[in-house]
């Protein structure tokens, strides 16, 4: 049947694109506001390019975490432990013992710790039937505790030149951390939209019972989703270590809230079954841009947090409005 191809794509895709365009509009507005506040800086093209790269560099670690978070939320769950897992993976990979294995050993350690802790989350949720909110909240507390114990509450300096260099080098003019984010987000997009893993994620989040009765192993898949989120935390831990040239148990505080907020602003349905990687990534950049704007304008961070809170509310209200309009037609 050839007609199937000539008909308009489903509205779901349209909605996602309208939404992403609206978010780009928000970015433009933020840019204009910045130009109005500091015309002196924004008139310098080199500064603008450089500042944009600063914003993206700032988005890199949280962006990687948001990719994993987007998968978990689309699959019908939530992961509150991401900030704590980054801290745990960070300190574990920068102990004196681990550093003796060189950059390879440190990266392997960070990823393994992330995946391992994520698997624990996944097993608790999928096989222990714990509510994701509770399981990952418990992991948040426990992982921070373990991180504090491992580090002895001390900041651990990373002496590894390769790792520290990630935040200070560029590939084709783009900061290496931003390249890592682009690669992770690109892989995430392919995983969500082009693989059976992604299809299962959407099916389970959209209707777990239907997925189960279609023969999909929803427990194993749910477990893997949390492991994926843990893997993203491990990658982010290496990135943060590189930025700070150190790790500590208090690192990545409240990252879980930023990642969840970015996913939701990007159009991910908190009840599961719907969301896009592109939307989540724009959500991350919107948040970083606001932080950047407040720094440039020398405004207090309290106001900044109030603005962020307001944006989350507006994003969800817009989402509900879209649904209501769609139901009426």
């Amino acid at each position: 049947m050839t007609t199937a191809r000539n008909l308009p794509v489903s509205w779901m895709r349209n909605v996602a694109w309208t939404r992403n365009l609206a978010l780009v509009g928000v970015l433009i507005v933020l840019f204009v506001v910045g130009a109005l506040i500091r015309p002196d800086l924004y008139s310098d093209a080199d500064w603008v390019v450089n500042n944009t790269l600063v914003i993206l560099q700032h988005s890199a670690a949280i962006g990687v975490v948001t990719v994993g978070m987007t998968f978990v939320i689309i699959g019908g769950g939530i992961d509150l432990s991401v900030g704590a897992l980054i801290a745990l993976a960070g300190v574990w990979s920068t102990t004196v013992a681990t550093q003796s294995f060189g950059p390879g050993g440190m990266i392997f350690c960070a990823l393994a710790v992330g995946i391992g802790a994520g698997l624990v989350n996944g097993i608790l949720v999928a096989y222990g039937k714990l509510v994701p909110f509770i399981a990952t909240l418990a992991m948040l507390v426990a992982a921070r505790g373990l991180a504090a114990q491992i580090s002895g509450k001390q900041t651990q300096i990373s002496g590894d030149q390769f790792i520290n260099g990630l935040a200070r080098t560029r590939i084709l003019g783009v900061p290496t951390l931003v390249v890592i984010l682009i690669v992770v987000a690109g892989l995430g997009w392919v995983l969500l939209n082009r693989t059976t893993f992604g299809r299962r994620t959407v099916a389970i989040g959209g209707n777990a019972e239907a997925a189960r009765l279609a023969g999909i192993n929803i427990r194993r898949h749910t477990m893997l989703l949390y492991a994926l989120s843990g893997l993203c935390c491990g990658i982010a831990a290496v990135m943060l270590t590189s930025l700070a040239t150190s790790s500590q148990a208090a690192a990545a505080e409240l990252y879980e809230l930023d990642a969840i907020a970015a996913a939701i602003i990007g159009g991910t349905l908190l009840s599961g079954g719907r969301g896009t990687i592109v939307g989540s990534m724009i959500g991350v950049v919107v948040f970083s841009t606001i932080t950047n704007l407040f720094a440039i304008a020398n405004l207090p961070t309290e106001v900044q947090n109030m603005v962020k809170g307001g944006i989350i509310v507006v994003a969800v209200l817009v989402q509900q409005l879209q649904f209501r309009l769609k139901k009426r037609t």
Binding site: M12, V202, A203, G206, N207, E209, A210, L213, G273, R274
Partner: peptide, 10 residues
Amino acid sequence: KSQALLLGEP
């Protein structure tokens, strides 16, 4: 609707 379909999907 609750046991078989993904209502938000094509």
